[in-house]
Design a protein around this nucleic acid. Sequence first.
DNA 1: TTGGAATAGTTTCATTATGCAACCAAATCA
DNA 2: TGATTTGGTTGCATAATGAAACTATTCCAA
Lengths: 156, 156
Amino acid sequence: MPPKSDLSLLNCSLARALSCVGDGWTLLIIRDAFFGLSRFSDFQKSSGVARNILARRLEALIAAGILRREGSDTRPLYRLTEKGRALLPALVALMQWGDRWESNDCPPVAVTDAEGGVVAPVRVETSAGEAVTAETVRFAAGPGADPRTAAFLARR
Amino acid sequence: MPPKSDLSLLNCSLARALSCVGDGWTLLIIRDAFFGLSRFSDFQKSSGVARNILARRLEALIAAGILRREGSDTRPLYRLTEKGRALLPALVALMQWGDRWESNDCPPVAVTDAEGGVVAPVRVETSAGEAVTAETVRFAAGPGADPRTAAFLARR
DNA sequence: TTGGAATAGTTTCATTATGCAACCAAATCA
DNA sequence: TGATTTGGTTGCATAATGAAACTATTCCAA
C-alpha cells in the first residue's frame, strides 16, 4: 500500500476506503469478525497473520472506527462497529468474485441469511431497479468532486 | 500484503480474491480502467503510483487475467477482461462505503447507468429477494470447503 | 499457594516491498 | 534531424513485513 496520507488525500472514495481496508490482511480480519471471532489469538490462528502485524492492524482498524475494543483491558474483545458492519456488501461481492473466478465456482464458504436462504450474486442497480453492468456503467463528478477530479471525469 | 502464495493457498475465496486485488494500488488501477483509462502514463498520472510499481501491478493483473494487453507491443493498451469487469459490484460497494463513511456522504464520483440513472446502494440479498444484513448473515461450509475450513465454520 | 498453561501482546532482526530519481529505447512530432 | 512523448527499467534509500523469541497478566488446578 501507498503511504496512507497520499491515498486518503486523493479525492476518491475508493482510495479513502482502501486507505482503511486496502491491505491484504485487513479484509481477512474483518471477514473473521463477521464470522464471529473477537479474540486476538483467534484472529491470529484463523488468518495466520504474524502477531505483530495483527496487533498493528487491529490498532488501525480501531482508529478507523471499524472495530471496537470491548471487555477487559488485558484480554479485550474486538467487535465490528456499525461502520465495520457496513462493509458486508463489499466483502460478499469480493468473496463471490473469488468464488467465481478463483475457486472454480466451488465456494469454500456459503453465505446465507439466518434461515439458510442462499445469497444471490451482488449486483449493481439503479434506484429504479435496472441492472448496471460494466458495459453500461458511467462515472461523473459528484457533489464532493474537487475541480481536478471534475475536470478529469469531464474529459472522458 | 502477505506473500501471495500463502494467501492464495488459504481455503477462502476472499483470500484468493485479495491475492489478486488486495493491494492498495491494484483496485485504483482497476477503477481507472473502468473510467476508461488504458495507457501506462494515464494510469500513472491518475493514481500517482510510482512507475516501477505500476509496471509490476500491470504485469500481475495481466497474469491474473484481469487486464489484457492490446495494440502495439511498444505502446500497449491495458483493457479489462471479463474477469476484470466482474469486479464492478465489489468496486462500487467499496466506493459507496467510502462515500458514506469516509467522505461525509458527499461522493466525489457519481456512478450511473448509461442514461444517468443513479445507482442504488449495493445490497446483499437472498435469491428470494430478502435483504441480508450484518445481523442476519450466516456463514457455513460450502461445497469447496476443505475439512479444516468445514470444522472451523461448524464450530461457530 | 504454587506451578503450569493460555492470552495478549512487544521486541528484535533478517527479508522484502516501496518510492524516487535517473536512465534508456522506440516512436512521433516539428 | 533533433526534440518530445511514451513505456518502461535500474539502482538505491527507506519503510513494511514475517518469524521467532520474549514478557506480563490471568486463569486453572493440584
